[in-house]
Simulated scan of single mutants.
Amino acid sequence: MVYKSIRKLLFRMNAEQAHTMTIRGLQILQSTPSARNLIQKRFTVIDERLQSTVCGLHFPNPVGLAAGFDKHANVYNGIAAFGFGFVEVGTLTPRPQTGNPKPRLFRLVKDEAIINRMGFNNHGLEDAKHSFQTLAKPNIPIGINLGKNKDTPNEQASSDYRHGLMTLYDYADYFVLNVSSPNTEGLRDLQHVDALQKLLTSVLSTRDELLKETSSYRPVFLKIAPDLTWEQMTDIIKTAIGASIDGIIATNTTISRENLHSSPYVNESGGLSGKPLTQKSTEFIRQIYPLTAGKIPIIGVGGIFNGMDAYEKICAGASLIQVYTSMIYEGPSIARKINTELLSILEEKGVHSLNDLVGSKTS
């Protein structure tokens, strides 16, 4: 109820201005321990039926915040207070970059969707490293989403991803290789089998070297696009499994504009997220799960607004899920809402744990 009033004010602003204001609020929150603790008690749902262990990491609940919100890795502590089971920061690139020209973020209110063409705007690895060294780490997994700089040729892309891995290895619980954003020209070409094989071999061998040096294992996930054909997706998953990837994140934003009603932004270029992606991303997960034989986890992303959306993705094969756009429309209580509704679904269906549902409806 409170957020509905706040949302009216935020939605009167330019979308990026509203995001900047929200980030400032989170910075204030995480610098005020008493307020942060109060928020955490109010928003966190604690129940063993929601817990899981994925890639050796403990997740108190399955609802994470996707990359793209905490672009600079400087408010993850504040975000964690709102009951998320994990937070993914970035996308981070080796060198700072300003991203694409403004305006580059658009609300499609009638569709409960967002189009963004931000272009990996971030302060770079060294600034993020400083944040990790100074901010307290919350008691949930923190993922780091890595990308390449816009001016790095694809032939040299692996050096950017390896640089990110080596610079921030001590601070992540897991890493994500983002080769699927539509907002950096040519980036999605890294999903082509030959390029992907080269990239994964290079990055994962670097991770194995860091494992030997530190005695700490950091899982590496691959984030894929929802605009792939069945054949392309199958080739990508087989290539990733062959390279010993730890998991898949499905999916990134889409360039499709099917069945949209909002104007005037419907024809803006960029990646679309939100409710129009709900079924598409769920179907992708359902197709990917059999290819993995359930042996590597899937993080499901795309149009998750409530417990039933999360339930459908988990049944399709997702071990964990992530939200972003729904937080913009529903507010910061989104993790609490989804977790509470998931518990009700478990009660209704007589299921002991969410883990029992993973991949239970793949046909």
Rank of each mutant, 00 (worst) to 15 (best):
residue 277 L to K: 08
residue 177 L to A: 08
residue 199 L to R: 07
residue 167 T to S: 13
residue 253 T to W: 01
residue 238 K to A: 11
residue 233 M to P: 04
residue 86 F to S: 15
residue 248 I to S: 07
residue 277 L to H: 06
residue 7 R to S: 15
residue 183 N to I: 02
residue 352 H to V: 13
residue 111 D to Q: 10
residue 93 T to V: 03
residue 119 G to A: 08
residue 87 V to E: 09
residue 230 W to A: 13
residue 211 L to E: 11
residue 77 N to I: 01
residue 253 T to C: 04
residue 46 I to S: 13
residue 2 V to C: 01
residue 222 L to Y: 07
residue 350 G to E: 13
residue 157 A to F: 10
residue 304 I to F: 06
residue 322 Q to D: 05
residue 121 N to Y: 04
residue 39 I to L: 11
residue 310 A to S: 09
residue 167 T to E: 15
residue 87 V to M: 08
residue 264 P to N: 12
residue 127 D to M: 12
residue 154 N to K: 02
residue 311 Y to T: 05
residue 326 S to G: 08
residue 271 G to L: 05
residue 171 Y to L: 03
residue 122 N to D: 09
residue 165 L to R: 09
residue 295 K to H: 07
residue 146 L to C: 00
residue 191 Q to Y: 02
residue 33 P to D: 05
residue 51 Q to R: 11
residue 73 A to K: 08
residue 303 G to V: 04
residue 357 L to K: 02
residue 216 S to G: 01
residue 227 D to S: 11
residue 38 L to W: 13
residue 97 Q to G: 15
residue 283 E to D: 03
residue 26 L to R: 04
residue 165 L to I: 14
residue 73 A to C: 13
residue 181 S to C: 15
residue 174 Y to T: 06
residue 352 H to L: 12
residue 114 I to N: 11
residue 337 K to R: 12
residue 84 F to Q: 14
residue 66 A to R: 03
residue 172 A to R: 07
residue 329 Y to Q: 02
